[in-house]
């Protein structure tokens, strides 16, 4: 009995791609579900503290850069 290998190959392809896509679709669905659940019940509390700190640091950096530029200009 001779099996047609090409037909076998297409069977493999159907099953393989089917499994890959089903797996990924379930994965995408559970990822979306997970992010909804996590954002609703376990929100991150960090962002409230950061904004007050960041601008100050930025200001300091900006001031430092400007003063450096001024001294450089005066020297030159």
């Amino acid at each position: 009995m001779e099996t047609n290998l090409i037909v076998e190959g297409f069977k493999f392809m159907g099953l393989g791609m089917g499994t890959v896509f089903i797996f990924l679709v379930i994965m995408i669905a559970s990822m979306n579900l997970m992010s909804i659940v996590i954002h609703k019940f376990f929100p991150e509390s960090k962002p409230e503290i950061n904004p007050s700190v960041a601008p100050q640091q930025n200001n300091k950096k900006v001031v430092a850069a400007i003063s450096a530029a001024i001294t450089h200009h005066r020297q030159g």
Partner: peptide
Amino acid sequence: PKTALLGGAAQFGIFGTLVGAVALSQ
């Protein structure tokens, strides 16, 4: 998350080649 589908589609490379390889031996 939906970009995961692109990672799935690329696996056609695997199964397409599988068909090609068995066609060669057929």
